[in-house]
């Protein structure tokens, strides 16, 4: 791994009221890396992800993205979010817009592209995720797998330098997971930098450069998948992985 420190998360702590949900979380990613966050429910995975695009506010620590301090109060969060795409567990597609409308909204209203250019870009992104035949379908007319692919296309249309995935396949019927993972595999091959929360361990093993295991808001252990899966240093990591494996 070259160490370009594209994303440096250092000692990030976050509280919701009196409850501390992140304790000095640290990890780094290089450009083109795939980092997978794993951990039990309530361990703070989503919160960590949301701190990176400032949907949640970390109170302490530092997050450097491409050398810029994400947590700086002077930072324009909307500028940040143009560059950091997010894919949600529940898809969160704009219910009143077609597939193209969903993907084109950001390019049109945030990037300021013309109507035609935004549509063209949206169509290209939908083709990219295999939805060339669903341009004018509304979210309610699409399967979960298709909806999530629109969600990915929506994030891609902003040409982000980092993509955040929060359990992108957890809400899907098992038979629909494959098509979403396939799209994500494609992005990995293209060299997209991705920070992914998932319980899909085989996917994590295959594509992750590093796995970060969070428990109770703390990084218990992190390392390359082989090491973490085969020779976890911490007992808690082993137990968690066993539990996940028994679900598959």
């Amino acid at each position: 791994m070259s160490d370009d420190g594209f994303l440096r998360v250092a000692d990030v702590s976050k509280w919701y009221g009196d409850e501390q949900v992140l304790h000095d979380v640290s990890f780094e990613m290089d450009r083109g890396d795939v980092t997978v966050l794993i951990g039990p429910s309530g361990s703070g995975k989503s919160t960590m992800l949301r701190c990176v695009n400032r949907l949640a506010e970390a109170q302490e620590g530092s997050i450097l993205l491409d050398g810029e301090e994400v947590l700086s109060p002077d930072l324009d969060v909307n500028d940040l979010r143009r560059e950091v795409g997010m894919v949600f567990q529940g898809f969160n597609l704009f219910a009143h817009l077609t597939a193209v409308g969903n993907v084109a909204l950001g390019p049109r209203r945030v990037l300021g592209l013309s109507e035609a250019a935004a549509r063209e870009r949206a169509e290209a992104q939908l083709e990219r995720v295999g939805l060339g035949d669903q341009f004018d379908s509304y979210p309610a007319e699409l399967s979960g797998g298709q909806q999530q692919r629109v969600g990915i296309a929506r994030a891609l249309a902003m040409e982000p330098k980092l993509l955040l995935f929060d359990e992108p396949t957890s809400a899907l019927d098992p038979e629909l997971i494959g098509e979403v993972l396939e799209v994500m595999h494609g992005l990995v091959d293209e060299g997209m930098t991705m920070l992914v929360v998932t319980h899909e361990m085989s996917f994590a093993r295959e594509v992750a450069d590093e796995i970060v295991f969070l428990d109770d808001g703390r990084v218990v252990e992190r390392g390359p998948p082989d090491q973490l899966f085969e020779r976890p240093e911490r007992e808690r990591t082993g137990r968690f992985l066993e539990r996940i494996a028994s679900h598959d």
Binding site: L55, N78, R81, M86, F88, N92, F94, A95, G106, R109
Partner: peptide, 13 residues
């Protein structure tokens, strides 16, 4: 739904 707003904010609106 709340998620609609989150999604809007997440693309930089």
């Amino acid at each position: 739904e709340e998620g609609q707003i989150t999604a809007g904010r997440a693309i930089g609106l």
